[in-house]
Design a protein around this nucleic acid. Structure first.
Length: 901
RNA sequence: GCGGGCGUGGCGAAAUUGGUAGACGCGCCAGAUUUAGGUUCUGGUAUCGCAAGAUGUGGGGGUUCGAGUCCCUUCGCCCGCACCA
């Protein structure tokens, strides 16, 4: 333990807490003492607290501050509860923004990233987080991604890695692959060219091998939010259905898959995906088919785009024989059928599937009802949309009268009996495509040899490091066009071969980083024994935006490692918490400007710009042409608020106050944590992050709010300043309040109800302020210092060192050594006396017909008869009853009496 | 299109198993302190009403002695959708 030796003179003498000196003082003290360095050999019980590590975009934003403050409170609280806590921090450092910066600013992605990391680390340190920086990792360091390459090779050996053709967004002008976010309205974000779908040979991870297990595992994740489990369940999307084939008039067969075999009699067409072999075969000899398929390839690859795109179909003029009715159904090629799901072909049942309904309506195909609410209404017309709901089967031969569920079983049984189909489980989950045609990522450690095929880079040659000498002035993958990097000798035969130039999806980097935090040997990814000491993560905190992909991938990766025997746990995160965003109102004004550039001489130089509104359009008065309207946003520090109005500080012009939305650069509604910390100190910001809004909900930032928090920091300082170690006398009600608060705050923190814990601390503070000096009051103040220590650690250390530790040390140190450790960061959570948790008096509500008429005070645990007698003695209650006959009296002990007349 | 979520004062919100709706904070109002502003302290603040009282948890309906909480229905807003991290 370090000796702190605070010189009282350095602590602000004007009676105010001064974060500008105190924050740094205690951050240095924790650092010097190694307070937050996790010891994996400790005999204490272990607790691993983890927040999702940040992408080093340049600056810490308020969302990070909120996220890490929550984790920090948990980490510090757990330490006070006697746990050895692992609370690490690192950087999810690969990704596109670095390449974008390289293209826009001409900097190297690595240099840009490392500079950002240095800056953001300094910012995090100024907030005073209890982090073990000795375990810091950045995924862009070869020391990290080299181990990742080794793990990838292990997965390959275990048969969980393979290559296949897959569709990407292709920008035909920039000749480059585009991410979904780089496709805007179907066009490339830089070139503006119409994006095409293109097939590439890519690397995949067999996450579908674990679909059943990933689904089943969700059951055990009791401390995950229900909604995240539901989202994952839907994402995995297990469905049971029927696979069967249609015989075609041209002699082919088309296997289709349906989750609604009960509606098979309602099938009026068959549709195949544009990539379907049947469609591809037709395209060979028919250019109409080929051009239709080309048309389907336009547009992006996102689910939303595919499913909202206008339904397009091409009648192949082939017919398919219905296996039960023998009817001939037309076969279409359709853009809404996906090759990746099921068999890439469907039976179209327009009556009971909305997409099929839209399609049938457009191409005038029959729409037959086969499910009805009531058998008598078997021929009711449709009201402009499909009916996907439950009901009774009608117009369906042997199925008539059955429920949907029974009919599904009946059709599967018959199909299997007659040999024309089989029941099959299909997953919505697809294998994870991890190939990225980019520079700034983990190189995929494989070599392509003409003779030997795909050969993994031997482990003793890892890491495969990225070359530094790359340029971003030409589109495309710099690794692909690097003059030497990809040329290597085949590790097997020694012949000239080519290195894989794809890099790994950055989600791979974040799928195992929590293991590397737990254990960091130089020669392998992690030490299983060390990992076992810490895993699983006890609390994992991050944004809801990761509810599906990151969390599913991390669960998969952990399972895959367990499958290979490398670790023992299957679920990486025992408890998950998804926090809300930090929001701020927006300030905007409409800027109206001349569309045509100003041409001297065309009109008078001195002529003022004048616009008038004609209908919805602004018109440039001098040219008569439509003017350009543009929304301009202003940042909060450019704005002065007055009542309900907002003005630009500089010009005094009034602006519109917009909605409270997530802080974002484009809307300029960001508040920089650094500026706030410089002004109010770290503790005020931390307190604000925890106050008011429940942590899972959005937190609206406000200047008034942070100022209120800064005032509360000073209010606590004054209360702690009034601490009297020698005070005597007992204040029983304050004792009760203090102990109830200690217990409730502990419960709130454990349930991550920080806003509630904050409210209780306010209440106890108010009660302590109002009470006269007494031993009880001094105890309440000591308890408060402990309780705020996880939330406002700098203030807590300062008051501990100045007001409490020096005076109490000599008195108690022999008997209460732990509580009186020099740093409050090392102190235990205050003990609770259970006898003080219950009140001896309670307030009883008196109701007449359920309406409140009076309240009385009664001893706790009073009998029903006593309460009834007390209630009937109430004048207010009697006035309401007004002599009516009492029919019933409901007494809820310690709560209420309700008279029914 | 599919999936998920959220609606309670001027604002952020709280409310064991259904049992006093609005704790706590912000803002606002009044007063005290201060040379002034800020700070600090005291009191008030759901709505209507002088009051008694009535109304009130997005809207409508139901169950119950009693509903923010349970059921049905309806409206509004937000988020995710596989190459953003």
């Amino acid at each position: 333990m370090t000796d702190i030796r605070i010189d009282p003179s350095v602590i602000d003498g004007r009676g105010r807490f001064d974060p500008s000196t105190a924050d740094g003082r205690w951050q240095r003290a924790w650092d010097a003492a190694g307070t937050f360095t996790a010891d994996s050999d400790s005999t204490k019980p272990k607790s691993y607290i983890l927040e999702m590590f940040p992408y080093p975009s340049g600056r810490i934003h308020m969302g990070h501050v909120r996220n890490y403050t929550m984790g920090d409170v948990l980490a510090r609280y757990q330490r006070m509860r006697g746990f050895e806590v692992l609370h690490p921090m690192g950087w999810d450092a690969f990704g596109m923004p670095a390449e974008n910066a390289a293209m826009e600013k001409g900097v190297h992605p690595g240099g840009w990233t490392r500079q950002n990391i240095a800056q953001m680390k300094a910012q995090l340190q100024r907030i005073g987080f209890a982090l073990d920086w000795s375990r810091e990792i950045a995924t862009c360091d070869p020391e990290y991604y080299g181990h990742e390459q080794a793990l990838f090779a292990d997965l390959y050996e275990a048969g969980l890695v393979y290559r296949k053709e897959s569709t990407v967004n292709w920008d035909p002008v920039d000749m480059t692959v585009l991410a979904n976010e780089q496709v805007i309205d179907g066009k490339g974000w830089r070139s503006g060219a119409e994006v095409e779908k293109r097939k590439l040979n890519q690397w995949f991870l067999k996450i579908t091998d674990f679909a059943e297990d990933l689904l089943a595992g969700l059951e055990s994740l009791e401390d995950w939010p229900e909604k995240v489990r539901l989202m994952q369940e839907n994402w995995i999307g297990k469905s049971q259905g029927l696979e069967f084939s249609f015989d075609l008039s041209n002699g082919d067969r088309i296997p289709v898959y349906t989750t609604r075999p009960d509606t098979i009699f309602g099938a009026s067409f068959v549709a195949v995906a544009a990539d379907h072999p049947v469609a591809q075969a037709l395209a060979m000899n028919n250019c109409d088919v080929a051009s239709f398929i080309a048309r389907c390839k336009k547009g992006g690859t996102t689910a939303a785009e595919l499913e909202t795109a206008e339904k397009l179909g091409f009648d192949t003029e082939i017919s398919a024989r219905h296996p039960l009715t023998g009817a001939d159904l037309p076969v279409y090629i359709a853009n809404f059928v996906l090759m990746d799901y099921g068999t890439g072909a469907i039976m179209g049942v327009p009556g009971h599937d909305q997409r099929d309904f839209d399609f049938a309506t457009k191409y005038a195909l029959p729409i037959t009802r086969v499910v009805a609410n009531d058998p008598a209404r078997a021929d009711d017309p449709f009201k402009g949309e499909a009916e996907a709901g439950d009901g009774v089967i009608v117009n369906s031969g042997f199925l008539n009268g059955m429920s949907v569920d029974d009919a599904i079983q009946a059709v599967i049984t018959r199909a299997e009996g007659e040999g024309w189909g089989t029941g099959r489980t299909v997953w919505r989950l697809r294998d994870w495509g991890v190939s990225r045609q980019r520079y700034w990522g983990t190189p995929i450690p494989f070599i392509h040899c003409e003779a030997c095929g795909v050969v993994p880079v031997p482990k003793d040659q890892l890491p495969v490091t990225l070359p530094d000498d790359v340029s971003f002035d030409i589109p495309g993958n710099p690794l692909e066009r690097h003059p030497t990097w990809k040329h290597v000798d085949c590790p097997k035969c020694g012949c000239a071969a080519l290195r894989e130039t794809d890099t790994l999806d950055t989600f791979v980097d974040s799928s195992w980083y929590f293991l590397r935090f737990a254990s960091q040997p130089a020669d392998r990814p992690f030490d299983p024994e060390e990992v076992a000491k810490w895993m699983p993560v006890q609390h994992y905190i991050g944004g809801i935006e990761h509810a599906i992909l990151h969390l599913l991938y991390a669960r998969f990766w952990t399972r895959a490692l367990a499958h290979m025997g490398q670790i023992a746990v299957k679920e990486p995160f025992a408890a998950l918490f998804t926090q809300g965003m930090v929001t701020h109102e927006t300030y905007s004004a409409i800027e109206i400007s001349r569309v045509r550039p100003f041409v001297p001489g065309q009109y008078q130089d001195s002529e003022p710009l004048e616009f008038k509104k004609v209908g919805d359009q602004w018109i440039d008065v001098s040219t008569g042409e439509p003017a350009r309207e543009r929304v301009v946003y202003f940042s909060p520090d450019q704005i002065r608020r007055e009542g309900n109005k907002a003005f630009i500080k500089f010009s005094g012009e009034e602006v519109d106050i917009g909605r409270v939305i997530k802080m974002s650069k484009s809307k300029k509604n960001v508040v920089d944590p650094d500026a706030i910390i410089a002004r109010h100190g770290a503790d005020a910001v931390r307190w604000f992050m925890l106050s008011d809004s429940p942590p899972e909900r959005d937190l609206p930032w406000s200047d008034a709010g942070i100022e209120g928090c800064a005032r509360f920091v000073q209010r606590l300082w004054r209360l702690f300043n009034a601490y009297d170690a020698g005070a005597t006398g007992e204040d029983k009600s304050l004792d009760r309040k203090a102990h109830q608060t200690i217990a409730a705050v502990a419960a709130d923190i454990e349930a991550l109800g920080f806003n509630k814990a904050v409210a209780r601390i306010y209440e106890l503070t108010g009660a302590a302020e109002k009470s006269a000096p007494s031993a009880s009051r001094s105890a309440a103040i000591r308890a408060l210092v402990h309780m705020v220590a996880p939330m406002m650690p700098h203030l807590a250390e300062e008051v501990w060192a100045k007001f409490i530790y020096p005076t109490e040390k000599s008195k108690f140190i022999s008997t209460m050594r732990d509580e009186y450790s020099e740093l409050i960061a090392d102190a235990p959570w205050p003990a609770v006396d259970p006898a003080l948790l219950v009140d001896d008096e309670v307030t009883i509500a008196l109701q007449h017909m359920g309406k409140l008429r009076d309240t009385i005070t009664a001893p706790k645990g009073a009998s029903k008869d006593t309460l009834e007698a007390l209630a009937l003695a109430s004048a207010n209650l009697q006035r309401s009853i007004d002599g009516a006959a009492v029919r019933k009296v409901i007494v809820v002990p310690d709560r209420l009496v309700n008279i029914v007349t």
